[in-house]
């Protein structure tokens, strides 16, 4: 679906590379978390995925189309929808449903088809009842869900989310995460979730850890988070469940990501 081939990127010619030698393939239907510190290049990685930025070296392919091909940029952006951190700065209209319709309007669809897509997108994020509201009166989580609906309305194959929960309270985070993970599970939407929350990454099917513009680790959440020492080297945290087991006895099986798995491990450990 999205493929990075030996990609490097620098914002200015001659400047230090923000990303170096990235090779990454995101398959259809996958739910990939990209994890890393501020400034590790994870937002840049996201922006390369739908041609907002063009690699300095190497190529990015979306559905086999290179993002260098300006003629096809429209198709690329339609296939890979992007949601940003600040929902306030991506909502265009002062009525929820008109904002969700924005992408369809740009595609020049018939009014009836737009109506259908808007209703579908709003139901998918569970915001249908708010369709005539003004966005500035909604909560942060609701606004971010409207932003997601705005992207869903163009029926993309992949959803790229650049720290969609960074500005939200815990409740808003929960709402947005449930929505995104639900889309992946129920509709088979390919999801790329850029985040710095370990517990969000733990919910995805694959984790890519970025460090200083390179991919430091990649694998399933269990594979990645059980490498506690390696994660510490990258000065990243691991989920609390893994941390607890590690502090208890570092030779334990550190793949517990849920509280129940963690409790089972401790029970086993205590029984000897």
């Amino acid at each position: 679906m999205i493929e990075f081939k030996n990609v490097s990127f620098a914002y200015e010619e001659g400047a230090k590379n923000v990303l170096s030698d990235i090779d990454l393939e995101i398959k259809k239907g996958e739910c990939v978390a990209v994890l890393g510190h501020n400034g590790c290049g994870k937002s840049t990685l996201a922006k390369l995925m739908n041609g907002i930025l063009i690699p300095t070296a190497g190529d990015v392919f979306v559905n086999g189309l290179s993002t260098r091909d300006e003629e096809r940029l429209f198709d690329i952006r339609r296939a890979a929808g992007m949601v940003f951190q600040n929902s306030d700065n991506q909502i265009v209209s002062s009525i929820v449903e008109e904002d969700v319709a924005f992408a369809c309007e740009n595609l020049g669809m018939e009014s009836a088809e737009i109506r259908k897509r808007v209703d579908e997108a709003l139901s998918a994020v569970d915001m249908l009842e708010y369709r005539t509201h003004a966005p500035h009166l909604l909560s942060g989580g609701q606004k971010q869900r409207v932003a997601i609906a705005g992207v869903l309305a163009m029926e993309p194959q992949a959803l790229i989310l650049d720290e969609p929960t960074a500005m939200l309270d815990p409740r808003g985070r929960r709402e947005v995460l449930d929505t995104v993970l639900g889309l992946n599970r129920e509709k088979g939407m390919t999801v790329v979730l850029i985040t710095h929350h370990m517990d969000e990454a733990a919910l995805c099917s694959r984790v890519v850890v970025m460090h200083e513009g390179r991919i430091a680790l990649t694998g399933t959440p269990k594979e990645v988070f059980s490498q506690v020492e390696k994660m510490r080297e990258l000065s990243l945290d691991v989920p609390q469940t893994v941390k607890l087991l590690y502090e208890l006895d570092s030779s334990l099986d550190l793949t517990a990501l849920s509280v129940k798995e963690c409790a089972d491990q401790i029970e086993k450990y205590l029984r000897g």
Binding site: N50, I52, F74, R77, R78, G81, M82, F84, N86, N89, Q90, V92, F102, A103, N106, L107, G150, V151, M154
Partner: peptide, 11 residues
């Protein structure tokens, strides 16, 4: 940011 988001939504 809004301009980028609008481009992403095919404006």
């Amino acid at each position: 940011e809004l301009a980028t988001a609008m481009e992403c939504r095919l404006y």
